[in-house]
């Protein structure tokens, strides 16, 4: 019988950010978002930058801004190894907004000197942070 809930663990180098049951998780993989329900086939994947959404019973949602790492998905468990994970109260909105503007303006410069990939990464990071902050 497949499990009804997923045990979700999110660890960053400084500690465990999240450890608890969930009915579904949405993960920001490097290749795009992936929704995971209990009974998912075992999967190993790299994480990208984005928002991890954890839905627990009763439809309450938790959001984390994730930046890089890896995830292991098992039928009854999801383990996330993130380089960074911030919840809504960790996010410094003002800084994130400034970072977003900075990245945007840099991308609009269209000069050869800017590191486009770096700017885009910064943009994604700032967007994820703001999205998480917006949910609270």
């Amino acid at each position: 019988m497949p499990a009804k809930t997923l045990q979700v663990e999110v660890a960053v180098p400084d500690g465990l950010v999240l450890d608890g049951p969930a009915v579904s998780v949405q993960l920001p993989l490097a290749t795009g978002y992936l929704g995971v329900l209990p009974g998912h086939a075992p999967l190993l994947a790299e994480l990208g930058t984005g928002v991890l959404t954890l839905t627990s019973e009763g439809n309450s949602e938790q959001h984390l801004a994730i930046d890089g790492g890896a995830a292991e998905i098992l039928p009854d468990r999801v383990r996330v190894l993130a380089d960074k994970a911030e919840s809504a109260q960790d996010v410094d909105r003002e800084r994130a907004r400034q970072a977003l503007e900075r990245a945007n303006s840099r991308l609009q410069l269209q000069s050869l000197e800017i590191d486009v990939e770096r700017a885009q990464r910064a943009l994604r990071r700032a967007r994820a942070r703001l999205a998480v902050a917006g949910h609270s």
Binding site: P42, L44, A45, E46
Partner: peptide, 17 residues
């Protein structure tokens, strides 16, 4: 794990990270 894992990335790339 029975049946093995699926990989989003090739295993060597994952190992590389």
């Amino acid at each position: 794990v029975l049946g093995g894992y699926e990989y989003e990335q090739p295993p060597e790339q994952l190992l590389g990270t």
